[in-house]
Design a protein around this nucleic acid. Sequence first.
DNA 1: CCGTCATGTCATCGACCGATGACACGAGGA
DNA 2: TCCTCGTGTCATCGGTCGATGACATGACGG
Lengths: 180, 180
Amino acid sequence: MRPRDAAATEQALLDAARARFATDGFDRTTIRAVAADVGVDAALVIRYFGSKQELFTRAADLDLGLPDLTGVRAGDLARVLVDRFFAVWEDDPTFLALLRAATTSDVAAAAMREVFAAQVAPALAAVTDDRPAERAALVGATVLGFALSRYVLRVPPLVSMSREDAQTWLGPTLRHYLLD
Amino acid sequence: MRPRDAAATEQALLDAARARFATDGFDRTTIRAVAADVGVDAALVIRYFGSKQELFTRAADLDLGLPDLTGVRAGDLARVLVDRFFAVWEDDPTFLALLRAATTSDVAAAAMREVFAAQVAPALAAVTDDRPAERAALVGATVLGFALSRYVLRVPPLVSMSREDAQTWLGPTLRHYLLD
DNA sequence: CCGTCATGTCATCGACCGATGACACGAGGA
DNA sequence: TCCTCGTGTCATCGGTCGATGACATGACGG
């Protein structure tokens, strides 16, 4: 029996929503399904979050956890970034939810740009001061393209690629965008 | 007054559907809207294509027009590929429609994989015979990430990037994936 | 033991969508 | 001229969704 605990219920709804948004995208995710996953009535979701859009905004709040790259040696950059990549994409459905939603929702696309502007660009600015926004965007595009192909499109050679191989392939690309 | 020409009407519906799918994605595109764009009744769309899914499949049939890369010098590879990139993404809404749909539809994702397998991989196999599938997938991921960031997410530094700059940035990456 | 309020449910609304089948129109041939 | 058939329309169905507001329930304090 679920205890009558609003905070816990709200958290459970956010978790369920993240999972649904990640696998189904924004449009195909229904408030009814999220509520059913948690075992409550759909009306409760609206009561807590006001609207489906607001539920998404709350569920897709994202922290990439990028470390301070100041002083990281050039040779270690790729390893650090690719490690973060796998942590963010494989251990947490949030980014996948955001990506799936961003292709059909302006609000989600704006949220994604905000992640770049607030987290990626500042972190990478510690590595270079030549056209940092452009370089950060290219790194972002690289990461998104790899994630899209591997986790969404499921292109076979990328699905089965080991983390080490990913490191080996992506490393020189990331270094090129950041340092060349 | 539209002449009563089934073939022309069907073609107009396919064009309108491509445009709608490209901007709105699969779910938000309605048969009613496509029909209204052409000026016919929604029932006619169903009569011609059977279902919305089938309409999409017909509309998203895609030809990348990749040239034969045999004998293209390494220094020219990037230019050729980036040229094709812009032709495919900026002059034709088909790929954008496929990309938007692929993030929320297994059928569209499968269609995208098919494009890789049938067009990208064979074309790039002419350049290398060391792990060609892996290399082609990485090139594809690069291209998709750039397109996603530029045309869908509209990340500012990429939106305003000139073709020449795109060439300069992406060139070494593509060469790395194809030749290193 | 009772009342209150937070927590959660139920019934329902209005809108929209994909799809169906019957019907209208109009050009071209017998 | 009239009939036929290709082309397109109309009315409608069944279903789903987000959202709303009234109502139920149960824990906790007095």
